[in-house]
Design a protein around this nucleic acid. Structure first.
Length: 506
RNA sequence: GGGUGCGUAGCUCAAUGGUAGAGCAGUGGCCUUUUAAGCCAUUGGUUCAGGGUUCGAGCCCCUGCGCACUCACCA
């Protein structure tokens, strides 16, 4: 931290010194508060409507966001967690000296406590007429905000912090200055609450499983590696919760879920952050069709709770969650958009040549499953704007999913798409320990030895499964992506409070 | 990792290769119902960093750093 202050900061530090010289502590310990700004507004308007003559008194606190000194009077706005309220200071009430203290030593961004009674100004704004005030915390660095205007009770900003880098690096300043950013994270919290409420009410047990894992698994992704000094052991930050949650079904729970952080050591873009929030649930005695139904219900429930409606406005799209989701078999969907029938191409070589015939450039090292996944991502996914379940995936990219009865090459797996984004992934879970072991071995073969996406063999997981795992359906969803949809955010960084950025220069 | 663009005052932005500016914020003054208050005056710059070209660089060239978009990669 540089010891050098800007002119504005130096000016404010001088004010701190002057205040202390007058015996005024700029960072006091105790606060008095009788109402939030929203409470007092409601109370005053109620009293006014009832024709009450009794003065409405209040002690309010908040951050000073505007200040209009006009000689012997001053107007200012305080902002607290519930909104803003105007305060009015008059030399007649406070004395000339006290008013000057406020005008000269208080700044935008300071936290202030003010006591007085409520009234309505000539222009109609409900306002606190201040009888006494106190500094609660001095702001040294000016908030990166330009002036605001209040029109019909709404804060209108004429220019504000907009540089994305500064907004993400100094999220505190972004939040302090941009109320719509505060709103995004309230919506996100409401969304997570709704998901919990839904799963709790369906008798799922919320659990917590290890973030630090000796063997990572449950997804195809490169992990972050760390090290435990005393145990002298490499540990991986989890890339999914799957293998631990399914062990719990072996233990006798019939439904478990976890909402938590996953870590993937991969590229960063508008839909990927190195750490992200995942929701997974596992449901005994269910299959992927039941999970599809539950997914529809869950997303619809969340929309009702959070948005109060069944429609999402996302970028240019209006997404309808009220209707049943479209259900599309993967092979049919791909045939539709690419003209390639993957069922006619049982090998990677055959599929790759069919792709080349269409002018595509498949990666020659990819397995058949990876090629199909590529086609899905490149050609089919972008067309899936309205909610769609794509189902029945090839076995070699679904090592934890149970095959279709009588068709070992296709698994009972689906992914949910909205607005062209992959939102969730689910399947009828493989619970045959011998089949599972064979799949792990296949994965080891199909991936190069040094491909970190390859699934390591998890012997303990197989041991758990050998005790007997009930038939079950499992589900995973990127909560950040759902939050993007619910808040109409084009970038995942808008819904993550402190998104990852490269290290700042010293 | 590739491509494109951007980086100037606290914030938002200007500035043909020729003295670095504006609005807001800040500072001083006037102003007793304002609300982007107003009026007068005024402070503030390592132009992201480091090299180069040039009589002269915010601007042109090179390198680096960071951010955005995009492609690749990626459940």
């Amino acid at each position: 931290m540089s010891a050098k202050y800007t002119n504005i900061e130096q000016t404010r530090l001088d004010k701190v010194a002057r205040l202390r010289a007058q015996g005024i502590e700029p960072y006091p310990h105790r606060v008095e508060r009788t109402h939030t700004s929203a409470q007092i507004l409601a109370e005053f308007e109620q009293a006014e409507a009832a024709g009450s003559e009794t003065p409405v008194e209040a002690t309010l606190v908040g951050r000073m966001r505007s200040m209009r000194p006009m000689g012997k009077i001053t107007f200012a706005h305080l902002e607290d967690g519930s909104g803003r309220i105007q305060i009015f200071l008059r030399a007649n009430d406070l004395g000339q000296e006290k008013l000057e203290l406020f005008n000269k030593e208080f700044d935008l961004g300071d936290f202030v406590q003010a006591r007085g009674e409520m009234f309505r100004t000539r222009s109609g704004e409900v306002t606190l007429k201040v009888q006494d005030f106190r500094l609660l915390s001095k702001s040294i660095t000016p908030l990166p905000a330009a002036k605001d205007e209040i029109v019909d009770g709404e804060v209108v900003q004429h220019a504000t912090l907009s540089e994305p880098e500064l907004r993400y690096r100094q999220r505190y300043a972004d939040l302090a200055v941009n109320p719509e950013v505060r709103r995004i994270f309230r919506t996100r919290a409401a969304l997570v609450r709704a998901l919990r409420e839904f799963l709790d009410s369906h008798d799922f047990l919320e659990v917590e499983t290890p973030v630090l894992q000796p063997i990572y698994g449950g997804a195809a992704a490169r992990p972050f590696v760390t090290y435990h000094n005393q145990l002298k052991q490499d540990l991986y930050l989890r890339i999914s919760f799957e293998l631990y949650l399914k062990r719990l079904l072996v233990g006798g729970y019939e439904g478990v879920y976890e909402i938590g952080r996953d870590f993937r050591n991969e590229g960063v873009d508008r839909t990927h952050n190195p750490e992200f929030t995942q929701l997974e649930f596992y449901w005994a005695y269910a299959d992927y069709l039941k999970v599809m139904d539950l997914t529809e219900q869950m997303i619809r429930f969340a929309a009702e709770r959070v948005l109060g409606k069944h429609e999402l406005q996302y970028l240019d799209h209006t997404i309808r969650l009220g209707a049943p989701w479209q259900r599309m078999e993967l092979n049919e969907g791909l045939l539709e958009v690419t003209g390639i029938d993957i069922d006619q191409h049982p090998t990677a070589e055959s599929l790759a040549s069919a792709m080349r015939a269409k002018g595509m450039e498949p990666n020659p090292n990819d397995t058949r499953g990876k090629l199909i996944d590529g086609l899905l991502g490149d050609y089919l996914a972008p067309t899936l704007i309205q909610p769609t379940f794509v189902y029945n995936y090839p076995r070699d990219i679904s090592p934890l999913a149970k095959s279709l009865p009588g068709n070992p090459q296709i698994t009972e797996r689906f992914e949910g798409y909205l607005a062209g984004m992959e939102l969730c992934n689910a399947f009828t879970e493989l619970n045959d320990p011998l089949d599972q072991e064979a799949r792990f071995v296949e994965m080891g073969r199909d991936y190069a030895q040094d491909d970190e996406e390859r699934h390591p063999m998890d012997e303990d997981y197989l041991r758990a499964m050998r005790y007997g795992m009930p038939p079950c359906g499992g589900f995973g969803m990127g909560v950040d992506r759902l939050a993007m949809l619910f808040t109409n955010s084009p970038n995942i960084r808008e819904v993550i409070l402190f998104p990852h950025l490269r290290k700042e220069e010293e």
